[in-house]
Design a protein around this nucleic acid. Structure first.
Length: 595
RNA sequence: GGGCGCGUAGCUCAGUCCGGAAAGAGCGUCGGACUUCUAAUCCGACGGUCGUGGGUUCAAAUCCCAUCGCGCCCGCCA
């Protein structure tokens, strides 16, 4: 409803300004501070003052007089407060918000008939997912969810780097060493924990072994890479044996978040189908291409990039960047838009990619990056190769353990007599524990650096997932108590919706809550445009504050409540439930029915 | 050295893109509220040169310039 109200206000204001012969290019529309009763305001009078030859408050009065609120649907009155114009919401605004929000898909925007591929995570299949990269699947999954709610047709891709030198090293190590050569046991009973030991062993050997041993290894690694470049089935199968096993394990870890993918796109695909060769030929033809030191490169200095892009090594093999160009042209063929979630260390490459795609004749308007900075340990970076870092599995386990302990501690002084059984405790521990990890990461701007500390990452206090989840559980508790199904659309249930006069919800707490609910679709819209899921997290906090205010002030099911008011408040609770459930669902945080 | 990002309360962060109503949360500290729909909640108090210095503007945390601190990048790695 907020979007409709904003459109109406813009129209009315523009009309009034035009009628007064004022310029209409800047309407100065803004959201007023909390202590102001209006839903939207305008500071346009400041700008018009000199032109009008009158002080701003007087101009504001003039403009307000020009607008007839009776002709507006969602605005009941236009008032001035000093230089500001305030647009007050009408009963229709509240009534329509209430009726819209009781639908279980509230917050879902109309279908845009536009497809978008969200590529995220895409971690090299070298070993267990560690916390340093954990921002990627968490932000990426939220961005994909957000775009789905915003009306896009979304596919989620994991781009598998199976053709790089690292994988050749891994394959060589896997084939060369035996279990008995390894110094340690797997840290966990899953494939990537088992195999990463070969990768680490291989890297240690390459760094420390005698020269002739390293040379022999390098020759083998080189032959694997040449085999891949030639599209050789045997090389592909050797590498795949490692890649598929490790990736399978990593996928299981990511499913715990949960972060799931529609497709795992391997980069070897673009070598084997000839796209990379074609692309290399086209790159060579560009004016920017140069052949220096036996390698083919692109000189992008005229396009503001100092660093050359090497696209063919002196040994004739392609590079990650080369294949990624082919990969992106494929994305452009298949989708209207493409979003990639990347670590900030890939920023320069992202610029090179975009520039080069343009040189190749692609329209890159639909290509956007979401950049985040890595999570580091107090003592430095996490690295799979060196085995430094905190595994995401361990973080999730610890989160669940701490959440379980929290649930058990609270069991004794629990008022509600719904008797949580062991399954409930386990369910809540998972929902809260994993939810807290995700919420902590997704609620911050991705560009801010994070240093990992256990206690900070696993803080269940307010402004965290449990705070918001608790509001959801409270909503469900009330609805269930009233005999309603919290999950379902209220319209499909046995409730007298026609009795929902908005003036039954007259207290400030109810109005504030409804106003917040009304803004949800607009928040989805803007967060989707900006690719910033943390805006949704900020909204959930504001929403939870408002709901708790309502909860304190307005009993729903208590004995003394007028039956009509009770119905209206139940509808408000149902609207709240769908709002918070859907907001949490965008963030990928579970919404518990009880906790 | 160059490019990019970050700097807001003791701590963790919103707000910055798109300038407007005496800077907002949470944690921590202190003081209150459970015979009432779940106290993982709520209410109150304390706490701020918005890194620093200039500039633009009727108006700057927000825009511009400079500067300091921290991070990332500047591979025929990914």
């Amino acid at each position: 409803m907020f979007l409709a109200l904003r459109a109406e206000v813009e129209d009315a204001l523009e009309g009034a300004l035009a009628a007064l012969d004022f310029p209409t290019d800047d309407l100065g529309i803004e959201e007023p501070p909390d202590d102001v009763a209006s839903v939207l305001a305008s500071s346009v009078a400041f700008r018009l003052a000199s032109e009008a030859g009158a002080p701003p408050p007087q101009v504001a009065g003039q403009v307000a007089d020009e607008i007839d609120a009776d002709e507006l649907t969602y605005v009941s009155d236009v008032q001035t407060q000093g230089p500001y114009l305030n647009f007050l919401p009408s009963d229709a605004y509240f009534a329509e918000t209430l009726s819209e929000a009781t639908a279980d898909d509230y917050g879902t925007l109309p279908d845009r008939e536009e497809s978008v591929v969200v590529e995220h995570t895409s971690a090299n299949p070298t070993g267990p997912v560690h916390v340093g990269r954990a921002r990627n699947p968490i932000i990426g999954d939220a961005v994909a969810n957000l775009l789905e709610y915003a009306g896009y047709d979304v596919d989620r891709h994991y781009y598998v780097n199976d053709a790089g030198r690292q994988m050749a090293v891994f394959t060589w190590a896997y084939e060369t060493f035996d279990e008995s050569d390894l110094e340690s046991e797997p840290e966990r009973d899953r494939k990537e924990y088992d195999l990463v030991r070969y990768y680490r062993k291989g890297n240690r050997v390459l760094e420390n072994a005698p020269e002739d041993e390293v040379e022999a290894a390098e020759a083998e690694i080189e032959s694997i890479m040449q085999g891949l470049e030639a599209g050789d089935d045997e090389a592909y199968e050797r590498v795949s044996e490692v890649v598929d096993q490790v990736l399978g394990g990593m996928t299981e870890c990511l499913e715990r978040l949960p972060a799931e993918f529609d497709e795992f796109v391997k980069e070897t695909r673009f070598m084997r189908n000839g796209d990379t060769d074609d692309l290399v030929a086209r790159l060579k033809d560009l004016d920017e291409s140069v052949y220096e030191e036996d390698a083919w490169q692109l000189d992008l200095e005229d396009h503001g990039i100092d660093k050359n892009l090497v696209f063919l090594r002196s040994d004739g093999t392609s590079l990650y960047a080369t294949r990624d160009l082919a990969h992106h042209e494929w994305k452009f063929d298949e989708y209207d838009r493409a979003v990639t979630v990347l670590g900030e260390d890939h920023k320069l490459q992202a610029r090179q990619l975009r520039t080069t795609l343009e040189l190749l004749g692609n329209d890159t308007d639909g290509l956007r990056q979401v950049l985040y900075s890595y999570v580091n340990l107090p003592e430095g970076k996490m690295s799979t190769r060196r085995g430094t870092g905190v595994d995401l599995d361990d973080l999730l386990d610890e989160a669940i353990d701490r959440a379980r302990k929290e649930v058990e501690d609270r069991l004794d002084d629990r008022i509600r007599d719904d008797e949580l059984d062991d399954d409930d405790i386990e369910r809540i521990a998972h929902q809260v524990g994993i939810g807290a990890v995700r919420y902590d990461i997704v609620s911050k701007q991705p560009t801010k650096a994070i240093t990992f500390e256990w206690d900070r990452a696993l803080d269940f206090e307010a402004q965290s997932a449990p705070y918001v989840q608790y509001v959801h559980a409270r909503c469900c508790g009330i609805l269930e108590e009233a005999g309603l199904d919290p999950e379902a659309d209220l319209a499909d249930q046995d409730v007298e919706l026609e009795a929902l006069e908005a003036d039954l919800l007259a207290t400030d707490a109810e109005r504030d809550l409804l106003e917040t609910i009304a803004r949800f679709p607009a928040v989805v819209d803007e967060a989707g445009d900006d690719l910033e899921p943390h805006q949704i997290a900020t909204f959930t906090r504001e929403f939870a504050d408002r709901f708790n205010g309502f909860y304190r002030e307005c009993p729903v099911l208590a004995d003394g409540v007028d039956p009509e008011v009770r119905e209206a408040r139940l509808a408000l609770v149902a609207a709240s439930k769908h709002t918070v459930a859907n907001a949490l669902s965008i963030l990928g945080v579970a919404a518990p029915r009880s906790m």
